[in-house]
Each structure stands twice: as C-alpha cells, then as structure tokens.
Simulated scan of single mutants.
Amino acid sequence: MSTLQSALLINLVVLITTLYADLGTKAVNRGRLLRPLIVAVIIVPVFVHTFFGSGIGLAIEICGLAAGVLFGLIAVSQVQVFREPEGGVVSRAGRSYAALWIGLVVARSVFSIGATYWYESELGRFFFRHGAMPQDIPSIVANGLVFMAIAALLTRSGALMVRASGQR
C-alpha cells in the first residue's frame, strides 16, 4: 500500500469511527471512550514504521500531535454533554461537529494528494534542507498525519470523559 493510500485509509477510518461514535445523542460509556484507543493501537503499528527522535522528523511528529490535540479540543467543544432525567450521562453532536471532522479529513486528504502529485519535489526539498534523508521523507509526512489523527481521537475521548465526569 502506498503512503498516499495509507493516509487516505487512515482518514476514512478516523472519520467513520468518530462520526459513528458521536453523531446524535449517545450514552457516554467506557466502550465509547475506549474505542479510539483501540483504533490507535491498531493504526500506529500498521502505519508508523519509524519514530524520529530528533531533527525535522521529531518536529513534524510533535506538530502533528499538537495539531491533533488542538483540533480534538475544538471538535469536542461542539458536543453537548448532559445528564438525562433517567440519570445517564449522554452527549449530543450534530452538523457542526460533523462538519469539523469532515473538514479535517478533507484537508488532510488534499494535503496527502498534493504531497504525492502537486508539490512533492518542493516538499522534498524543504525536508532535505532541514536535514531529512530523502528515504525518510514519506515516513516523516505519514507520521505527522497519523499522530495528528490519533491525537485528535484521543483528545476527543479524554475531553469527553472529563466533561461527562462533571455531570455525574
């Protein structure tokens, strides 16, 4: 599977998992909050083959993590969390939440396609100028995107858990 195919597959898995778990009114329970962790445990070993401990690779991984955390916090701000009259804690997410996730996935997909077809050489030169070996560039880009996706999912779960615990 090519790097582009991997990126598009991750985007699709993240989008479907998140929208399935959150759209509408859903109970906030352990399974719902742990599902993204399970997705992360599956995705990271399959799609991340090299971790970069220094240089531009590490910087891109950190930026991906930071962007994912920020996005996860913004997305979960679009979710209402409340206690039902029966006593259970539920969340409700609608069109604005879905639009944010769809927008993120479209932006990530367009970036991945562009990195493969439209500005591959410019991106390669940028990374090479910043110390990346040419053979590492696809892994650096993939790691940044994977870390962003996983951080967004896990942040969404963590923030939802914190908000739900305030309703108990």
Score class of each variant (00 low, 15 high):
2 S>M: 06
2 S>R: 07
10 I>S: 01
11 N>A: 12
15 L>T: 13
16 I>N: 05
16 I>V: 15
16 I>G: 10
17 T>M: 11
18 T>C: 11
19 L>Y: 06
20 Y>R: 14
21 A>C: 07
21 A>R: 10
23 L>I: 14
24 G>F: 08
27 A>L: 09
28 V>F: 00
28 V>L: 00
32 R>D: 03
33 L>V: 03
33 L>K: 02
34 L>E: 01
36 P>H: 03
39 V>M: 05
40 A>I: 08
40 A>S: 13
44 V>K: 04
47 F>I: 05
47 F>S: 06
49 H>W: 05
49 H>E: 06
50 T>W: 09
52 F>Y: 15
54 S>G: 07
55 G>V: 06
55 G>A: 06
56 I>Y: 04
56 I>C: 05
56 I>E: 05
59 A>W: 09
61 E>R: 04
61 E>H: 05
62 I>P: 03
62 I>E: 02
64 G>V: 04
65 L>H: 05
67 A>F: 14
68 G>W: 09
68 G>L: 10
69 V>C: 11
70 L>Q: 10
72 G>E: 09
72 G>Y: 11
73 L>G: 11
74 I>H: 12
75 A>H: 10
80 Q>T: 11
80 Q>H: 09
81 V>P: 02
82 F>T: 02
84 E>N: 11
88 G>R: 15
90 V>K: 07
93 A>N: 01
94 G>D: 03
94 G>Y: 04
95 R>F: 13
95 R>W: 12
96 S>L: 11
96 S>T: 12
97 Y>W: 09
98 A>W: 07
99 A>H: 04
99 A>M: 08
99 A>Y: 07
99 A>D: 06
103 G>C: 08
104 L>C: 14
105 V>H: 04
106 V>Y: 01
110 V>T: 12
113 I>Y: 12
114 G>W: 10
114 G>T: 09
116 T>G: 09
116 T>E: 15
117 Y>P: 07
119 Y>N: 10
120 E>G: 06
120 E>K: 12
122 E>W: 14
125 R>I: 12
125 R>Y: 11
125 R>D: 14
126 F>V: 10
127 F>N: 08
129 R>C: 05
131 G>K: 13
132 A>K: 02
132 A>C: 05
132 A>F: 02
133 M>E: 13
134 P>A: 08
134 P>N: 04
135 Q>P: 00
135 Q>I: 07
140 I>W: 11
142 A>Y: 11
142 A>Q: 14
144 G>L: 01
147 F>T: 09
147 F>A: 11
150 I>P: 02
150 I>A: 03
150 I>E: 01
151 A>R: 04
153 L>H: 09
153 L>P: 08
154 L>F: 06
154 L>P: 04
155 T>G: 03
156 R>Q: 14
156 R>I: 04
157 S>E: 00
157 S>H: 00
157 S>C: 01
159 A>M: 12
159 A>H: 08
160 L>D: 00
160 L>P: 00
160 L>Q: 00
160 L>K: 00
161 M>P: 00
163 R>W: 00
164 A>I: 00
168 R>S: 11
